[in-house]
C-alpha cells in the first residue's frame, strides 16, 4: 500500500542495480533535453524576442490610431489595409472582435510587431504556420517578424473572448516584391463589391 511507510530497514538497503540504471538513463535524458532547450533558444528560427512593455490600453489605441493612416493603402471589409515599410514598427490591435489592421508585408524583410489588446485577453494565432502568442491588455508584446513565404495568412483569436470570438479574424498578405505590392494597392483602392 503506497500510503503506508515502507518496510523497516528500507533506508539502509542498497538500491538495486536495475533501478540505478533507470535513474541514470532518466538523468541523461533530462540533461539532453535541457541542452536541446538551450540550443533551440539560441539557434531556433521561431523564438519570440522576449521584449514586452507596459502600456495603458488607451495609450496603445492612440498609437495604433496614429500609425494606421500613415501607411494605409485601402480597406478590406471595413478594416484598414496597411503596408508598413520594411524595418518599421507595426502596431497590431486585438479588440472584441477584430484584428486590425490588415497587413501587407514584403517577404524576407524584418518588421517589429507590437501586439496588444485594448479590452481583454486575446490569442494571436497566425495560420497556417501556427504561431501563437497571448495578447494582454496593458502590455505590448514585441515580436521581430520576418516573413519567409508569400501568400495570404489568417490571424485568429485562440483565447475565448466572448460571443463574437469565432468571428475575430484578421489577415496578413505577404508579397514577393514592390510590383506585387503595387497590385495589391490598386486592388484595395478600387471600390469593393
Amino acid at each position: 500500500m503506497s500510503l503506508q511507510p515502507p518496510a523497516e530497514g528500507w533506508y539502509e538497503t542498497p538500491v538495486a542495480r536495475d533501478e540505478r540504471s533507470w535513474v541514470a538513463v532518466a538523468t541523461v535524458v533530462c540533461l539532453c533535453l535541457y541542452v536541446w532547450m538551450i540550443g533551440w533558444h539560441i539557434y531556433g528560427r521561431q523564438n519570440p524576442s522576449s521584449i514586452s512593455y507596459r502600456i495603458e490600453p488607451a495609450e496603445y489605441m492612440q498609437l495604433h490610431t496614429a500609425w494606421v493612416p500613415r501607411y494605409q493603402i485601402g480597406e478590406e471589409n471595413g478594416v484598414p489595409v496597411v503596408a508598413p515599410p520594411p524595418g518599421s514598427d507595426v502596431f497590431l490591435l486585438g479588440q472584441m472582435w477584430r484584428w486590425a489592421p490588415v497587413l501587407v508585408l514584403q517577404k524576407g524583410q524584418e518588421y517589429t510587431f507590437h501586439l496588444a489588446s485594448v479590452d481583454l485577453l486575446h490569442g494571436f494565432s497566425l495560420q497556417p504556420v501556427n504561431m501563437n502568442f497571448m495578447v494582454y491588455p496593458g502590455y505590448d508584446y514585441v515580436l521581430r517578424f520576418r516573413p519567409t513565404e508569400t501568400g495570404e495568412f489568417t490571424v485568429m483569436c485562440n483565447e475565448f473572448c466572448g460571443i463574437g470570438h469565432h468571428m475575430m479574424t484578421g489577415k496578413i498578405y505577404v508579397v514577393e516584391n514592390a510590383a506585387e505590392l503595387e497590385q495589391l494597392r490598386q486592388r484595395f483602392q478600387a471600390p469593393q463589391q
Binding site: 514586452s52 512593455y53 507596459r54 498609437l63 493612416p69 505590448d140
Partner: peptide, 17 residues
Amino acid sequence: SVAPFPEELKAQIVQQA
C-alpha cells in the same frame, strides 16, 4: 520587471502621424 513603453518611440509615432 516589465519596462514601460519607450517614450521616444511613442513620441516618434505620434509626431509622424
